[in-house]
Each structure stands twice: as C-alpha cells, then as structure tokens.
Design a protein around this nucleic acid. Structure first.
Length: 264
DNA sequence: AAGTGCGTCAACCGCGATGAC
DNA sequence: AGTCATCGCGGTTGACGCACT
C-alpha cells in the first residue's frame, strides 16, 4: 500500500507556528471548515503541510481546548484511564474535555508516570502517596478558599490552572463545540450572511504578545464568565463537575460511562 | 556570571486504519 | 480485490526556560 509523502519537502515551512500563520489557519477554518487537510494549506495560503495544519489546529487552536495546568482530578483520571487503556492517548483525551492527546501524553511522561511508578527504593507505597497527596490537596483547598472564596467555591480547578489562556478566552467562539464549529461556506452564509473575512478576523482578534502571555487567574475570572458556564454545560459524556462535593459523581460517571473501557 | 543539567511542551515522523475509486 | 489518498494515532525529537552548581 503506497503512502502519500507527508509533505513536499521543498518550500514547506517547519517548526514553530507564527501568530500570523495561526491567524490565517483560524480564519480559513472558521469560514471553510477543514474537509480536506491536505488541500487546506494551499487553499489557505500557508506554506505548511496539511498534517502540520491539522496538528496545530487539533492541539492548539481549536476553540474548546482548555489550556493550563491539569487539575488533580484530571491527573487522577489520566492515571486511572491509563491503567485501564494503556497508551491510548486519544481515547483518554476523549474522556477529558478540552484536553488533547498530545497534552495528555506530555503530562503523563513528565509528571504522572513518576507518580505511578515511583523509584523502587521509595519508602511509601503508591496508595500511601495518594493519601498523602489527598491530604495536601485538602490543605491547598482550604488555603485557596481563604484567599479567594468565590473562585474556589465555583470550581475545583486551582487558580494556577491556566497560566496560558486558550485562544478562546478572548472570543465568544469558546462556547462552540467541535461538532458545530467547523462550518462550510453554506453554513457561514446561512448563519452569518453579512459575515466577511474581516468580521471573521474580529472573532479572532489580532493576537499580540500580551494575548499569548496573559495570565488567566481567578482575579479576572469575572471577565470570562463563559468559562465557568462551559464547565457546567459540557456535552453528555464530557463529565466535569465543578463542585468538590461532586467528586464521587465525577468518578462514577467517568467509569460508568466508559463503554469502551475494558472490564477491569 | 557562566556553565550545565533537567523538565516541559510544541511539533515532527512514521505507521496503521479507513474510505473512495 | 487491489491501489491510492487521506486521516488519525502514538512515539520521538528538539528548542526553550529554569534551577542548580
């Protein structure tokens, strides 16, 4: 079976994406969707291979991607699911709304693997370690709640969860889901008959350095109420409870809805 | 202050799966 | 049934930044 070359080596750019490239890609997908990744860069005017565009979109630019540190619950979910599924990162990512397989893979190799497989001479068992971490979590929650009652009472995410804002934090597009985000031309015309390229760009305003480095903290969370709303409005199957008291429900849903999970 | 090591994460590479013809 | 094109996944790499010496 022949395989198409990944990309034409000549003339195609590799390496980190520039803000301008991001803007072009977002703009194009916002209008046309991505029916054909291979043809997309040419049509959009990008000197990238389709594979690179797809990766950039799915791992970074997609509107519903949640960036920033993983919460303890997310980490525990990854550990549990990895124990059940192994290195099926995409399947694990499917159970963590807003997280990409690449991101999960990274966090596994950099953080969680060590936690699950501690060095042989470690004195504490994994269970004991988890108990210890749970105690620390509770202490952290108490601390953070004393610092910012509103924030911690609304969400189980720690305040430092999002050192980098997602591209959606500045855009109303963040309310969209994957399924309804990618519009074809007809859909755009139907829903936004007066929309032109400039208007699309307005939805994704010029991303300057401040945009990429802006810290999303609890202090300015009022500017992004949509983020909190989304947590409670995740699609079915995307279970994410925002209250600490709902932890049991969270885990129940994680495992009871795991129809593709092998029986443990 | 400079050098070194390590951790992090975006991006690339190669392969298998899948669908169209 | 065989071939081809495309997509998606998992493994790996390399640049960057930070901490430590």
């Amino acid at each position: 079976m022949g395989r198409a070359p990944c990309c034409e080596k000549m003339g195609l750019k590799k390496g980190p994406w520039t803000q301008e490239e991001d803007r072009i890609l977002i703009n194009y997908i916002n209008i046309h969707g991505h029916p054909n990744w291979r043809a997309l860069p040419k049509l959009a005017g990008l000197l990238r291979c389709g594979k690179s565009c797809r990766l950039r979109w799915t791992n970074y630019l997609k509107p519903d991607i949640k960036r920033g540190n993983f919460s303890r619950e997310e980490e525990e979910t990854i550990i549990e699911l990895h124990g059940a599924m192994g290195n099926r990162w995409s399947a694990i990512a499917a159970r963590l709304p807003g997280r990409t397989d690449n991101e999960i893979k990274n966090v596994w190799h950099t953080h969680l693997k060590k936690r699950v497989n501690p060095k042989p001479n470690a004195k504490t068992s994994e269970l004991e370690t988890k108990v210890e971490e749970t105690k620390q979590d509770q202490e952290e929650v108490v601390e953070s709640s004393s610092l910012d009652t509103n924030w911690s009472s609304q969400t189980s995410y720690s305040q430092v969860d999002s050192p980098q804002p997602s591209s959606t934090d500045t855009s109303s597009v963040s309310t969209r889901t994957n399924e309804n985000f990618c519009m074809d031309d007809d859909m755009v015309l139907e829903n936004f008959p007066e929309m032109d390229d400039d208007m699309v760009l307005e939805n994704f305003p010029e991303m300057d350095d401040e945009f990429w480095s802006e810290v999303f903290s609890g202090d300015n969370s009022e500017q992004f109420p949509i983020v909190h709303e989304n947590i409670g409005q995740l699609p079915s199957g995307c279970v994410y409870e925002s209250n600490l008291h709902d932890d049991m429900d969270f885990w129940f849903n994680v495992f009871t809805r795991g129809d593709e999970l092998p029986q443990i």
